[in-house]
């Protein structure tokens, strides 16, 4: 299957500053793809490049096999876009705003009216459909923006921080919505800072760092790449040299001291029975043991800590 979205050596420079630096992305059909990274790492810029809303300095973009700059109409009619901090015409009602976009998107008459109702009820805005958008809260606008994407019935949805301004319940609903859209075959690219959300819905993620993609892959792959494992076991024991005892054990990918008599064991499987057996066999006393799946947050924090350390080392060497 050929990818729906593909970029090749994509570069965007603003003067001497490189906002997007040789980005290669490839998103398959039906996939939910997450763009992650700290503020200013180039996620929004990449999204603008995908949509043809800004021109790349180098490299190329293919959406459905088309170039968004050369065939903008063909691309834009298949792609729905939710910008971060989406804006609407305040003097018009939610329904009127959507009707305007529907007409621009080439939908007319009763077909459009029906789709608008459906879209509004999917984001739970049907009861305020005829209220002026000027009276809407930030979260309601965000949901209206999502209704617009749904209305367009696009193959691809590109959502820039879709959870911005949403309360926890709305976030949860959004996740479910994204899930069901993906289930219907829509390809979704989203950027977010809410890692738990990304972890919950995204099949694959790309970690942006200073305009480059540092890591890309499935969440579980990333956790093992960065943290060495997908599980983290905290072991509290005495009377045994835990690192020595567990050294060479199967599935264990790393051991670190977490405190006096406390160790943190990274593993790519649930190794609790094994740990317990080994410690007891070595004559130690196992006091406590707890296991957690590592979250994307930890991957994120650890990854950017490492790159920062590396950068500092490089800077020091240069100086």
């Amino acid at each position: 299957m050929s990818p729906v979205i593909e970029t090749n050596g994509l570069v965007k420079r603003y003067g001497r500053f490189t906002a997007v630096d040789h980005v290669n992305l490839s998103v398959e059909k039906g996939e939910v793809f997450g763009l992650l990274g700290p503020n200013g790492s180039g996620k929004t810029t990449t999204i603008l490049l995908l949509l043809g809303l800004t021109e790349p300095t180098e490299g190329e973009v293919r959406v459905n096999g088309l170039d968004p700059l050369r065939q903008p109409l063909a691309v834009k009619s298949r792609v729905g876009y939710l910008p971060d901090q989406v804006g609407f015409y305040d003097a018009m009602t939610a329904r009127e705003n959507l009707a305007y976009t529907a007409r621009l998107a080439g939908l007319r008459g009763t077909d459009a009216a029906g789709r608008i109702i459906t879209a509004l009820s999917r984001v739970r805005l049907a009861d305020v459909a005829d209220k002026r958008v000027g009276t809407f809260s930030r979260g309601m606008r965000q949901r209206l923006g999502l209704a617009e994407v749904i209305l367009k019935n696009a193959d691809i949805a590109i959502l820039d921080e879709p959870t911005g301004g949403l309360d926890p319940q709305a976030t949860q609903e959004l996740l479910e919505l994204i899930g069901s859209l993906a289930h219907e075959g829509m390809t979704i690219v989203l950027s977010s800072h809410l890692l738990s959300m990304v972890q919950a819905v995204c099949h694959r993620v790309a970690l942006f760092n200073r305009g480059r993609i540092g890591l890309t892959g499935r969440v579980s792959d990333l956790t093992s790449a960065v943290l060495g494992g997908a599980y983290e076991v905290e072991v509290e024991a005495s009377g045994a040299d835990v690192p020595a005892v567990l050294g060479g054990a199967e599935h264990v990918t790393g051991i670190a001291v977490a405190g006096p008599g406390l160790w943190r064991v990274d593993a790519d499987a649930d190794v609790r029975p094994q740990i317990a057996r080994r410690i007891v066999e070595a004559g130690g006393a196992l006091k406590n043991m707890s296991i957690r799946r590592t979250t994307l947050d930890e991957v994120y924090v650890r990854y950017f800590q490492e790159t920062k350390n590396q950068q500092e080392k490089k800077d020091a060497e240069a100086a």
Binding site: L53, Y81, P83, V86
Partner: peptide
């Protein structure tokens, strides 16, 4: 400034 431009220009128009 109303942040409507990108939404409108993301529609299939030139």
């Amino acid at each position: 400034n109303r942040r409507t431009l990108s939404r409108v220009l993301a529609q299939p128009i030139y």
